[in-house]
Design a protein around this nucleic acid. Structure first.
Lengths: 355, 355
DNA sequence: GCAGGGGCTGTTAGCGTTAACAGTACCAGA
DNA sequence: TCTGGTACTGTTAACGCTAACAGCCCCTGC
């Protein structure tokens, strides 16, 4: 079959002779077409297009010219099957609509840039079942590695990850046991630290406002750490308010209004993320409340996007960019060892909302 | 080769006999392994796992049990090559870090949900060269369709899209000639409409604040339409300020401060997007300026995220969710015809910042 | 009894590429 | 002159799966 090249003297003649029926002009091109158009074997074309092995300058030029003229685009499906090498890295994250994961992605892409590896994103919407499906789908493309947010997965999902035989990096969180390696921060510790800072600043009647989502384990762990540290000081949350969905800034405003109406004497509001925290801050400022004197506020994430607000919300940077970078490094085999936990340490930024 | 099943009576015996070297326990599994483990042919396993064709309930159960037990994950690379069907839809967008494209993606995923099609995202960072590479990369996976932001592409990129032989949907913008089909709004018209509304409200000394990016064609077209409409009223921009990169809210604040220092008598600020518009609004409010009496403001995009700010910024919804939905529908072959331009019409939301 | 048709399972032949190996031609050095 | 190498090109056999077809068995209806 591949011997057809032998019969060809004029490459153009070969094209029509060797294809019995009328060649469909919009059929997608193969290496074969370029091979026939340039009068060399498919293997040589393959070598030219991948810049692998020695090819004479003249041949290379002829092949490239033909490929360009025909508009040939290689078929990676076939290439991947033949070489059992796939330049894809799966990235499984819960959401794209808050600002945190896009930044992680930026860190990943940045680090993968010069490796020939390409990230492929899958979104789970914080649903464990959906995550399981996304993992299955991703693994079925046999990627070179997988980066996945969080340490909590369904049992089958975990089994798939173990079985996959590729580097797996669980990101964001390190409070748990990774399948392979992990890069992130301790959210429990982050919650504790914030609580300690708040209490040290003299606040005592503290409330929490956050997401309802059962599957946002990182938010849950922060709250657990937070309450744990309060308990050590003999304190507990005065009130709490949960939300789900909707516009974060507006939700923060509404939740804050509700909570202050219900518990007017609280002196600190701890939010599970910066967006709702900023909404709350805007509300407090609109109400003319003395921030941080009468009431303090803090969020989480260090969302740069919000820097333009008149008062800077206290927060903790989640090291998103760095997490993305490190995870990509592990997958790409740069520097870092696999099978280990890389802990990063967020910095508390007191901003203007803690006295 | 595939006849091996005939020799097997005990499925387990077969496994060791038919693989000359010691089978690597962590080798990735194939249909063959499931076939041997369940005592049926590879084809039957394939049928069971794809629920295609008739298979007896007993056999199906046996196969599924074996697949589950082994932890088999099908190899889509091989499947796609054999069936020349790929359930992937390429989505090429310029950025993930402003809020607009994630929402488009949401619309796309939502519509693709029940079609078996899966979006794969590529980001170009507003670089035409990068876009060309991303398109090449995507097409080399032979996706079922491609959704791409904008109508402006390099010549080779355009050629590739034409050649690809798959449905191509160019989204966001319709001011130009699509390769195949397009779904979007007229940014030129959007700019005109906003200018008309501003002039109708009595503002006369109008300034523009926006991105510097040469390759954000939609922002450029909005500005062109805006100036065009001003010209018809005998007006022109009093001043303009550009930025690139950085935190949008903060940038909006800084730009506004600069511009007002330079041109204190402007009475309207037209921003190229809501984020910098919101930053500007916060600045004006902080300065105690009378909005919208002394000075009016408007942005673009209808970013819901910002709804919690005390004063609502005038804006125009870019129909992002709907654009994503329609584009996905075209790719999936639902309802809409290919090869056509679908124009959507954004609604001007005057908010609280136009008098 | 037998034709015809489901229901179920297996076999064959690729899909388009690349790894591994097999040349061939030519040149340098012994 | 011959040996051994280098530079270049071609051939063969997969990669893991599915389309297409080829059975086989059993049942139904005449």
């Amino acid at each position: 079959m591949f011997g057809a090249n032998k019969e060809i003297s004029d490459p153009w003649q070969g094209v029509t002779v060797s294809r019995p029926p009328i060649p469909d002009p919009r059929r997608t091109l193969t290496l074969r077409d370029v091979s026939e158009a340039s009068g060399v074997s498919e293997m040589t074309v393959s070598r030219v297009l991948r810049s692998r092995g020695d090819v004479s300058a003249a041949t290379r030029e002829r092949v490239l010219e033909a490929a360009r003229r025909l508009g040939y685009v290689p078929n990676k499906i076939a290439g991947a099957l033949a070489s059992s090498r796939v330049n894809l890295v799966g990235v499984v994250i819960p959401s794209l609509s808050n600002m945190v994961f896009p930044e992680v992605l930026t860190g990943i892409s940045e680090m993968l840039e010069d490796t020939g590896l390409q990230p492929v994103v899958g979104v789970t919407n914080y649903s464990p079942d959906r995550e399981e499906k996304v993992i299955y789908e991703m693994l079925s493309w046999r990627p070179s590695g997988l980066i996945i947010a969080g340490l909590e997965h369904t049992a089958p999902a975990r089994a798939m990850l173990v079985q996959a035989g590729i580097p797996i990096v669980e990101i964001m969180d390190i409070d748990g046991t990774p399948v392979d390696s992990a890069v992130g921060i301790s959210h429990r510790r982050a919650g504790r630290q914030m609580a300690e800072a708040i209490v040290a600043a003299g606040y005592r009647r503290i409330a929490f406002l956050g997401t309802q989502m059962l599957n946002d384990h990182r938010a849950r762990k922060r709250l657990e750490g937070f309450e744990e540290a309060l308990a050590l000081q003999g304190l507990s949350l005065v009130d709490r308010e949960f939300y789900s969905g909707g516009s974060a800034l507006l939700k923060g405003r509404e939740m804050t209004q509700n909570l202050l109406a219900r518990s007017p004497d609280v002196d600190f509001l701890y939010y599970s993320n910066d967006m709702i925290g900023a909404g709350g801050l805007l509300y407090c400022l609109d109400q003319g409340l003395d921030v941080p004197g009468r009431i303090g506020l803090a969020g989480f994430n260090g969302v740069e996007l919000l820097d333009g607000i008149s008062r800077k919300l206290a927060t903790m940077d989640a090291c998103r960019l760095e997490i993305g970078r490190r995870a990509a490094q592990i997958i790409a085999g740069k520097q870092l060892p696999e099978g280990a936990v890389t802990e990063l340490f967020p910095i508390l930024q007191p901003g203007d909302t803690i006295r």
